[in-house]
Amino acid sequence: MTSFILILLASIFFTGIVNRVKSITSGRKGPGILQPVKDVIRLFKKKPIYSKTTSFVFQVAPGIYFASVIMAIMIIPLGELKGIISFDGDFVFFAYILGIGKFFNIIGALDTGSSFEGMGASREALFSMFAEPAFFILMGSFALLTNHSSFQEIFTSMHFGSSITYVLGVLATIVLVMIALVENSRMPFDDPKTHLELTMVHEVMVLDNSGFDLGLISLATNLKFAMYGALIANLYMGNFPLYLTIPIFLGIQFMFAISVGILESFTARFRMNRNPQYILVLSSVSLLIFLGVLLVLGEFR
């Protein structure tokens, strides 16, 4: 429960911080940190417009997407504290519940019959498909390392005793940050601020959403960011007491947000047709982690 509330809390500020960092680095005054939340509230009050082409799928899709993100957040633990949902193999449930959200997101986009939204949907499906093995190899390696298979148990028993596990933690951070960027369609993979539909991924999928639906989608995006931040934070928490884990959690979320902001300010978007290759690199990094785990366990003797 604690982690759930903390993630909700972090999500309020997360995108705001990212935007603030971006505005500072580019020398603009920029909006306040709470601006994304205000945007969502404004969207909730707005009248939605629907295309004549759309069917009920378009109307239910954002809700189910949002529900899936909420379910996924419930699974995330905080150090020793379990998430609301916790059982052996819960990370599989985590990946697949996010999967169903994505499924509805994609068919919601296809429901508009637009020539652009299908493109975004296709890219989203392709990119997340390539990111999936990386996540599973990563979690499989940690399961091998810790002999556990639920988030909370894996994270608490990832004793950073030998020096290699620190390296593994860093590598895992890289993988998780990259997965977070892919899943949230952020900078090196997708430019959320681009104005050309042809080069968008996520933004083009929600072109026709408006009002409450669009509010739900942007809320879900904020939540997803904080969720991945929480996962990364968990890598470093171990079994620390609560008065340490909460500062660590907030600190890592803050650092994550700042680094996303800096990354977005100083890098250009990858070429679209190169994206799958970049994402496949994640799988090889995960394989490195796997080999590292084998090393730690002394399997190569």
Partner: peptide
């Protein structure tokens, strides 16, 4: 995991092409 990903792509495509849009 990869099979899961591709089958999501396959079936979003099929459902989308057959039932959605114009």
């Amino acid at each position: 995991a990869l099979i899961g990903g591709i089958s999501m792509l396959t079936f979003t495509k099929s459902f989308g092409t057959i039932f959605l849009g114009n």
